[in-house]
Amino acid sequence: MRWAIDHTSRERLQDQIATCVRRGVASGELPVGEQLPPAAELGTALSVDRNTVLAAYRQLRDDGVLEFRRGRGARVVSAGPALSSVTEAAQKLIATASGHGLGKSDLIRIIKELT
């Protein structure tokens, strides 16, 4: 599992960590039942405080993505929103864009500008 956070970003670190987990779950890299690294270990690796990782894990638990069990750490319990919904939305976007005469490169440019 690859974790990437930006310490200079305006986005809160705990939100960035939660995004990494959501991305891993959505891509199938973190299957249901997979155990996440202990908060202290991940905190050390990412150079953030253990409580920041715990805050991200709690956020994901509240969203139903993770569960905590004593002695077993944090585990993935939900596959999260399926990527198929994203693919469906992308198909709609492509159809709308082609209706306006916009091609692939135009769409990529617009998405890059927005993200």
């Binding site: 599992m1 690859r2 974790w3 990437a4 956070i5 930006d6 310490h7 200079t8 970003s9 991305r23 891993g24 891509s27 890299e29 155990q35 690294p37 270990e41 991940l42 690796a45 990412l46 150079s47």
Partner: peptide
């Protein structure tokens, strides 16, 4: 998540795995 782009200069990227 090997398909992700290389981390930028301000990014902190780590890999964790359990076997």
């Amino acid at each position: 998540m090997t398909s992700l782009p290389i981390a930028g200069p301000t990014q902190h990227a780590v890999y964790t795995g359990r076997t």
